[in-house]
Design a protein around this nucleic acid. Structure first.
Lengths: 347, 347
DNA sequence: CTTGGCACTCTCGGCCCGAGAGTGCCAGCC
DNA sequence: GGCTGGCACTCTCGGGCCGAGAGTGCCAAG
C-alpha cells in the first residue's frame, strides 16, 4: 500500500523516469513506453500497478481516462529534491557562461547578460533584480543643474550601484550651492546608509530651523525633494528570454497574460523578493507560483541571492514552466550566483 | 483605366474605407460589407469594379480567389499620407499620457513610462532609445574603488544621462589618486564632448610620456581602461508591450522570432537609428520593415526624435503590425516627443 | 507479486459536406 | 458610358463521422 506516500526503490525509479520523459517530450507518458525504456525489463502491467499507486499518493495525474500520466507539482518537488547536490555544471554551460561575461564593463550590462545566459541555459525566462533588502550605503552624491529649478541627483552606493533622480525644486539653486551641498554630504556621510543620512539630515534641519544658513537651506531643499530618498523602492529589473515561453504555452490568451506579467517589473521584483531568501546562500526552487499570480500556476522559480561579500546586491532567478531542465538550471543559477561574488572580490 | 495608379474621389473613398475596416476587423473586406457601410449607397457590383482597378494599381491584394481584399503596404502609405496633419490627439489619450508621467523622478523611469504608454495607446510595442548620434558632453566624472584594482567610473553628461562602467586596472590606485584624477578631469574638461576629452588625454599622455607624474599616471590608467570611452556604443533601450504582438501574430514560430528580435536591444537601437531622422522633428512612418529584418515584413515603425533643446537625447517609436491605429499612434508619438522637450526646459 | 490477455475509453487526424461569403462577368437600364 | 442586378463559380470554415492508435483497468493464471 503506497497510499501513505511511501516511496520505495521501484516507485522511485518509475516516478523519476516519468518525470524525466515528461520533461523531455511534453506528452503524457504511458506504461508501455516506460516499460520499453526500463532497464529492468518490467512489463507494462507491473508498471501500471505502480503508476496507479503513485497516482493515489498524489504524484501523478491523468489528463483524461486512457491517456498517459503527467507528474503533479508534488512529483516535481520530489524529483528536484533527489537531484539537489548531485548535479554538476556541464563543460558546455560553463563555457557559455564564461564567454557571456567576457569584456563586460558595467553593472547593468552584467545583470542583463546574466538574465540572458540564464534564459539560454534554462529555456525559461532569466531574471535579475538589483538590491532590495539591505540598506545601501552612501559612497558619493553629485548634483547637476539641468535647467531652471531642475536638478539631476546622482547617488553612488558602496556596492557600486548608481542611481539618478530628477528633482524639481521650489526655489532655484546655483551650481555653487549644489557643489557645496554635495561636498558637505560626501565629506560627512560617506559610508552611512541612505536611511541614516536621511534621518540625520531631518534632525539637522529640525535643529537649525531658525538659523538657516545658505548651506543648510540648499540641503534642506534637496532633501525635501527626495534627493536621497526611496532609492530602494526602484530596484533595477532585467528580464530576458520571454520569447521562450511561446513554445511552451499553447493558450494564446494565457500567453499574452504571462508576457504582460513579466513586463510589470515591480511584480517580478516582488516575486523574487518573496521567494529568494537573501539570508541564505542556497538556490531556492519553488514549484507552482499560483500564490504570486494565478497565471503562473504551472510555473517554477529557481533563484538565488546575488551577494558581494556580505552585502546582498540583488537576486537572480529563472522563471519557467514546470517542464524544465532542472539539473542544468539549478547548477547554472548556483554557479552564476557564486560568480557574482567573485567578480567583485577576486582579481 | 486606373492602371497608372490615378486615384480619383471614388477610389479614394473606397480605398480609405477598406483600409479602415481592415484595420478594425483584421479580416479581408468584401464588396458587400463595404456597400452596406457606404453612405453614398453604391451597389456591391460597382464597388467590385473599383476594387478590381485598385488591385491592378497595386493597392489591394486577395489572399485567395473569392476572399475579400486586403490592403498592400502601398495602400497603407497612401492612407497615412492622407491622415498626416489632420489627426488630433484625443482627450482620453492626452489624459493617459499626462497621468503616466506624473511623479516621475528619474530619467530611466521616464523612458520606461514613455515606452509603456506608447504601447498602451498603439497596441503595438513601445520603444525608447537614449542618445546615439550627437556626442555627449561631459558634466561630471567620479571614480569609486570597489576592490583591488576594481574601479567604478560614473560619467554624467550635460543632458542628464548617467553612465557607469566597471574598470579593471593593471595596477591598483588609491582613493586619493582617484579623487585627484576626477577633480582634474572635472575642472579642466567640463563641457567638452567625451570624444574631445579622450583625444586631449591621449595627447597629454603622449606628450608627457617620459616624465609621468602621479596624476598623469592615474589618468593614463583610467583612460586606457576606457573610463570615458564608448559610452555612445551602449544606448539604453526600453521595450514595452511585446505582449501586444501575441494577439496579432498567429504563427507561433514567427511570433517567437519577433519576440527574440525585440529582446536584442542593439538591433532595436539600430532600427531606430536607421529610420528616425534626428535632424528633423517630424514623426516618421515607415511601412514594411523587411529591410531591417525579414520577420518584420508586415510591421510598421512610427517614430520621432526626442530632443531637449537642440540636443538629441534619443528617439521614441512604436513598432507594430501594419494593421495599426495610425491616427492615435502618430499623434501620440508626436505629442510625447514634444513633451520630452518641455519636461526639461519648462517649469 | 508479476504477467499476459482482453474489453473498454478517449484523443486525434483525415475526410466529407454544406453553409456562407465573395468574386467575375454579362446583359440590361438610366 | 457608367451603374446595377443576376448568376454561376470558387474558396474557406466548421461540424460530423470514422478508424487508428495509445492507454487504462481488471482479471485470472503463473
Amino acid at each position: 500500500m503506497a497510499q501513505s506516500g511511501q516511496i520505495g526503490k521501484r516507485e522511485h525509479e518509475i516516478l523519476t523516469a516519468i518525470v524525466e520523459t515528461y520533461i523531455a517530450t511534453g506528452e503524457p507518458v504511458g506504461s508501455r513506453a516506460l516499460a520499453r525504456a526500463n532497464r529492468e525489463g518490467l512489463s507494462p502491467a507491473t508498471i501500471r500497478n505502480v503508476m496507479a499507486d503513485l497516482a493515489e499518493s498524489g504524484y501523478l495525474e491523468q489528463p483524461h481516462t486512457s491517456a498517459g500520466r503527467v507528474p503533479t507539482p508534488e512529483a516535481y518537488r520530489y524529483f528536484v529534491e533527489q537531484i539537489t547536490g548531485k548535479a554538476h555544471l556541464s563543460r558546455a554551460d560553463e563555457g557559455l557562461i564564461q564567454g557571456s561575461f567576457r569584456g563586460i564593463t558595467d553593472v547593468q550590462e552584467f545583470m542583463e547578460r546574466t538574465s540572458h545566459v540564464l534564459s539560454l541555459i534554462s529555456h525559461g525566462v532569466g531574471v535579475t533584480v538589483s538590491a532590495g533588502g539591505a540598506q545601501p550605503a552612501l559612497e558619493h552624491v553629485y548634483f547637476s543643474r539641468l535647467g531652471d529649478r531642475k536638478i539631476l541627483a546622482v547617488v553612488v552606493t558602496r556596492s557600486g550601484l548608481v542611481r539618478d533622480r530628477l528633482l524639481r525644486l521650489e526655489r532655484d539653486l546655483e551650481p555653487a550651492d549644489l557643489e557645496l551641498a554635495a561636498n558637505y554630504l560626501n565629506e560627512n556621510y560617506r559610508g552611512w546608509t541612505l536611511e541614516a543620512v536621511r534621518a540625520e539630515i531631518g534632525r539637522l534641519i529640525e535643529r537649525e530651523r531658525s538659523e538657516y544658513d545658505r548651506l543648510t537651506q540648499s540641503i534642506a531643499q534637496l532633501y525635501q525633494q527626495g534627493a536621497l530618498a526611496d532609492d530602494e523602492r526602484l530596484p533595477a529589473v532585467y528580464v530576458e528570454g520571454a520569447a521562450n515561453l511561446v513554445a511552451n504555452e499553447k493558450d494564446r490568451a494565457h500567453l499574452s497574460q504571462l508576457l504582460k506579467t513579466l513586463e510589470e517589473k515591480e511584480r517580478v521584483a516582488e516575486l523574487l523578493a518573496a521567494y529568494v531568501d537573501a539570508r541564505q546562500e542556497a538556490v531556492r526552487v519553488v514549484i507552482g507560483l499560483e500564490q504570486a499570480a494565478p497565471q503562473l500556476r504551472n510555473f517554477v522559480l529557481i533563484g538565488a541571492p546575488a551577494r558581494v561579500g556580505d552585502e546582498v546586491m540583488g537576486s537572480l532567478a529563472v522563471i519557467g514552466p514546470t517542464r524544465m531542465d532542472y539539473e542544468h538550471t539549478i547548477t547554472a543559477v548556483s554557479y552564476i550566483a557564486r560568480l557574482f561574488d567573485n567578480l567583485l572580490n577576486e582579481p
